[in-house]
Amino acid sequence: MMAYAAKRILQVVPVAVGVSVVCFMLIHLAPGDPLAAILPSDASADLQAQMRALYGLDRPLPVQYGLWLIRALHGDLGQSIATGRPVTGEIAGAAVNTFILAGVATVLGFTVGATLGFLAGLARGTWVDRITSGIAMLGVSVPHYWLGLVLVIVFSVELNWLPATGAGPGGRSLDWSYLRFLVLPAVTLSVIPMGIIARTVRSLVADVTAQDFVSALGAKGMLRRQVLRHVVRNVAPTALSVMGLQLGYLLGGSILIETVFSWPGTGFLLNTAIFTRDLPLLQGTILVLAMIFVLINLGVDLLQGAIDPRIQR
């Protein structure tokens, strides 16, 4: 296990380097001069050269990359052009909000999806299967920003039960005055992982229960619930890895939902950075999101290795 873990962790290094190169190059690949956003268009050549030197843009690219990387490793991702505040702080604040939203949505989606998928997989071809598969299909196909708007209209505008936007009063707690802001975005965001996990678990359960060892367990007299425990152990590694990937997507990919609900997370921050052409903020946010994705994949692989002995090779 240790050798497998070490090998898997080492594999992360080249991926992380590649990600950082792409993020760094963003500034130079994006159309237009990075200085154009902060300098007036009629700035003198002298001033432009001065700013260029100030930001280190006059040096060769590899040197710029090296300096940028060293600063990034020390937690310094530069200042936001729009607000002048350190990018690291902005991202950290937003990341916490996104983690909370994505975490709750994933747990919700996984619990509901895995339950539905398990029932459907055991009762293939019956009405239970048809209904749950229909729900899963809807979950995967419905555009979630549209679903978000519908939920807002029903629960905020019509029934007035839940707030439509924002993350509530400052300071987080398990208090309802805070949690109620979380309900609608989390439910909306959970629908996609719910659908995907339900479909995955359904087909996994169908595969596993068709295998010989399940009838062999019956043949040695194991009770139904004991057989089902074997089925769960066989289904779990793949289901967990799908959940991990979904969590990864949600941590980075909730731009639409965070915008619909004005949830102050990284997706919302990314959206802001794009529209204000705030390059350091954009660069930093993408780097952090990409690294989170890499780390989550690593975590999922290690977890899978711990559950399924066949993977550690």
Partner: peptide, 18 residues
């Protein structure tokens, strides 16, 4: 399994892999 038990054609498939 207690009065009557059974062995299978493919032991690899008849045992739980995990």
């Amino acid at each position: 399994g207690r009065t009557v038990s059974m062995i299978f054609q493919e032991p690899r498939l008849a045992l739980d892999p995990v």
